[in-house]
Design a protein around this nucleic acid. Sequence first.
RNA 1: GCUGGGUUCGUAUAACGGUUAGUACCCAAGAUUCUCAAUCUUGUAAUAGGAGUUCGAUUCUCCUACCCAGUACCA
Length: 556
Amino acid sequence: MERRTRVRFAPSPTGPLHMGGVRTALYNYLYAKQRGGDFIIRIEDTDSHRFVPGAEKYIIEALNWCGIIPDEGVDEAGNIVEQPSERHPHAPYRQSQRKPIYRQYADQLIENGYAYYAFDSAESLEKARAEAEAKGETFIYNQQTRMSLRNSLTLPAEEVKTLLETTNDWTIRFKMPQNTVVKMDDLIRGHVEVNTDTLDDKVLWKKADELPTYHLANIVDDHLMEITEVIRGEEWLPSLPLHYMLYKAFGWEDTMPRFAHLPLLLKPVGNGKLSKRDGDKMGFPVFPLNWTNSTGEVYHGYREDGYYPEAFVNLLAMLGWNPGTEQELFSMDELIKAFSIEKVSKSGAKFNPEKAKWYNKEYLRLRDDDQLTEEFIPILASHGISRPKEIVKEVVQLTKERAIFVKDIWTVASYLFVSPSEFEKYGIKAGAAVEQKPADPRRAADPRAKVYDDTVTAPFLAKDVDKFWKPENYTPAQKVAEFVSSYEGQWKPEAISQAIEEYIKSNEWPMGKVMNCLRLALAGASSGLGIADILYFIGKEEFAERVRFASERLNG
RNA sequence: GCUGGGUUCGUAUAACGGUUAGUACCCAAGAUUCUCAAUCUUGUAAUAGGAGUUCGAUUCUCCUACCCAGUACCA
């Protein structure tokens, strides 16, 4: 009979969830939702030493921000469920609180000869490893070595009994069978075979803290929670044979979940997987949300950097998966429809921060103007500026195509609100909007490029001053300012633009140079919005005033 | 080292034995515009190497190289 699809995301609360983890959660979620199944959250905190306060909350909040809402394991208030209920029948969902469950399963394995007690001290094993390494070998606790170590297979039954009763640091190990080929199937990688001789006798349970290790807890919980597919990171692939053997040892082969091992997320340049350090070093977030570690260091999050959750989810979905069509923009609902685990690629995906920005740009364009305006007003306020909504909306409509993030609208339009004469007061840098382009690493910088000192001409951009603030340009520009002051036509950008152009043409001035010179006076740099657009927003008086200020500052 | 996984333009990927090897990001050029941005058009650029199987291999097999993961009483 067909079982209801149930998948789980099982993070360990050892720190903030990074984007690779979010992607794993996302794929699980998409898989479940497509099949009308359940997406479950389970916290794997069997290692108390690595517990990090706040990590669990962070994980839930991050998933929530992304719109990845668990069906089971997390309650409405965003807490891990501790008491069973109709909706959360398998509570608690935190492994540390499921402590009483596991021991019986470890015992069952011992009774049936699939596991044994091991009394070797951590020190003695470490010593054995060091000795093997000195000889250029690797020490493995397996069928070859276990008969010469201290465990219930080698010690007399009496002694085992005494040790179990009197000592406190023994473990239960899986008795990996000899020379057996484990045949496994992975939804992404296909058929994989491994000989058990290359595997070791993994610790399943530790007396010292009365807790199972990952392997035991994971299999037991997946079984009890009726998980049908395990979708997890590639780093687990080497453990898959052990997990297969465990299902077999428990006699749960009939309900064993199917497995899918996801490729890793790699750093944008160089080799290796994406790590938390990479992001801040290369200027992109690695985490969904900001995270402050115990030493007060802050790691950037996509949310705080201005990404829309829809864009973040979309870009994550496309990292290692594609629909086989040329569609790139997907809403969550579209992802749920289109997703297929078979189309997940096998190889690791290098993360491309430029493409990430592109996604956000696309989502920003898709935004409704009113909504975008609401999002921009607080940013404007944070720069000390308040304007009526209708005005802000017009600015937003005019500039949104130049922005990747909502906050960019400020960078691109700040001079519509603030005169260059007050740039310093508001912390505005002329030409900031065009200066952010990163250099192409494939192209060497031109050594002949002229270097300008912006501090000399501030708030006006030095290289533009050098190029456009010349008598043959600013004399006409000043005339245009006079013309504008007496302009009585329709107050629409198109009409204003037409009038100014006609005026310049009638005087046979060079259009481009005069316009750029004007823009320098109005915006502090020769790049930016159209002159008529600027005038439309700042008004005639301000227009004249800015030209006067520029003349005063730059002439002579 | 050993075991497992992987390898198509710089990046993400498409082509599941037959294509002029496609698309997107990036980059460049042109068009447009008062500049920049946007937009449109065009362009640069890839099957890691070597053997085989086949009428034909990006695709199947093997070898080599390189990359990644695992190799804990961590997950």
